[in-house]
Each structure stands twice: as C-alpha cells, then as structure tokens.
Amino acid sequence: MRRVFAGPVILALSWSLLSAEVGGQDGPATPAEQYKALVKESQSRYDAAQKEAFKSVPKGGVLPDDERTALVGLAYRSKYEQAPKLVGLAERYPRDPVALDALTEAVWQVNTTPYPVEMVGRDPARPKAFELLRRDHIGSEKLGPLCERISYGFGAEYEPFLRDVLEKNPHKEVRAQACLALAHFLGNRSLKLDLVLGDPKQAREFADLYGEEYLERLRRQDRVKAAEEAEALLVRAMRDYGGDVKLPDGETVAEKAEPELFGLRHLAVGKTAPDIEGQDQDGVRFKLSDYRGKVVLIDFWSEV
C-alpha cells in the first residue's frame, strides 16, 4: 500500500518562455529592458540552483525522489522571490505593454499541489499582482493563457479574477477561456479540499500557503452549489462559445468543455463510475465491473 502514498507528482515546469537577452546598456533601461533583466535573473538563479542539485548525480543517472521534489520546491522558491520585483515594475509602468507580461510572469508559478511553505517559501506578491491585473489589465486580449493556468491552482485571488474577466473582458476568446477556467477551478478546488479534510498535515500546508481564513470559508461552502455552478458554466461555455471559438491549442471550446462536463456528471462523488475494460499486466482482458459487490480502490499510478 505504501506505493500509493509515495506516488509521483506530474508537474510541468515551464521555463521555456524565459530565454531573453538584456538590451543595450546605454542610458536608463526601458521598462522592456528592465523586464528582460528580471526574467534573466530568475532564470540564472534557477539554473545555478539546479546545477548545484545535480552536481552529485553521475552523468546519465537519475535523481532520487526527495531531491527531485526539493528541486521543484526550489523552482517555486526562486520564482516567488522574484515576483515582487516584477509586480513593482508593473506598478511603475501600468500603461506599458510590458506591465502585463511582468504580472503574468509574477503569478505564473501556480502551486498546484501544496508544497509546504518551508520548502517553497511564501508567495508575497500574489495579492498585489491580482489587484493590478484587475485594475489595469482586465480588458486585455492576452489574459487567456493566464486564466487557464490558474484554474489548476487554489489561491483566493483566482476566483474573483476569473469572474471579473468573464464579466468585463471584451474579447470573446478570452471570456470563453475564463468561463472554462472558472468551471475547472471551482470543481478542482472542491476536490483539493477533500485532501485537506482528510489529512491534518495537508490542512496545515494549505493554511500556510493560502490562509487559514480562506480555508475555513471553503470548509463551510455549499459543495453541491459549487458543483452546480461549475456545471452551469460549462453548459454556458458550450452554448455561447462552443463550436466557433478556437482556443490557442487549436481545440474548440466544446472539445474542451465536453470531457469536463462528463467528469462532473459521471466522475464525481455520488455518481456510478463508468466501466473500464482493458488488459491486465498478463494480457488478460477484464472489466472494472467484474468487481461489483466489492469495495474497489482504483489507483491511477505511473512509473516514477
């Protein structure tokens, strides 16, 4: 049974956006140059830390689990430490196009599963960053990817931001993404809350990272209502944006919303599980429903 608890976490680190050159050094740096310098600084801090972590690993070797986890923590920590500088830049130049890039970068690192605050540090810039996003950039056509990204997170700032975008953004594609993201966020947050309720250690970690008061409010929320709203948002996304709005990855809104709706209607607590049919490790075909009459624990696992 231990294997279940020691399971790996799939986490996409997206550093690919971050290769930038610092501009010319003559005269005061433009906002764009300052932004590039900050991004470069983040990257080199992370690279240096990663190099340090990998030093003890022989070429072609594999990093032990705990060290790999520490590396993920390090990524969060260096991002969180850089974030206030990016927010400061956005605050100084609210009308410069780079302001939104800086804010996006500042909140891009979404702590999807709660890495403890001792490991990843706090994320002090988040509230201010979302305050500025809502004040200065709520109508931007570039908000889609950010909406999608934060839908995997838990932070208190995400929900009001997504609601604002959905209500106020003039671009249909962005509203569509906000609609999908809000549905996903509401459903996901309820599920994460289940982890919190069952485990005091995780409850502590969530409270450290996201605030005791917020957690308490969620504990008292009406779960059924949250699920109903998520479902209504997906139905609305299909109706308003369904076939004609294409998302950046090429899928239509309907293609995105349908599996999510399936999830809410068939994969939620209280629903009869869909059957699974396939082959086991010996190539023998079997079905999940063969085990009707027994309590079944389904463990989706992957190779570490």
Binding site: V4, G7, L11, A273, R292, V295, V296, I298, D299, F300
Partner: peptide
C-alpha cells in the same frame, strides 16, 4: 496527475475521489 485515487462502494458508486 498521479496518484489519483477513487473509492467505489460495492454498488459501483464513487464515494471518494482524491
């Protein structure tokens, strides 16, 4: 993501999901 766990009761109804 993994791990993801479901617990079904004897009737096949999802009772827990983590």
């Amino acid at each position: 993501s993994t791990p993801t766990l479901y617990v079904l009761d004897a009737r096949g109804v999802i009772r827990h999901k983590w």
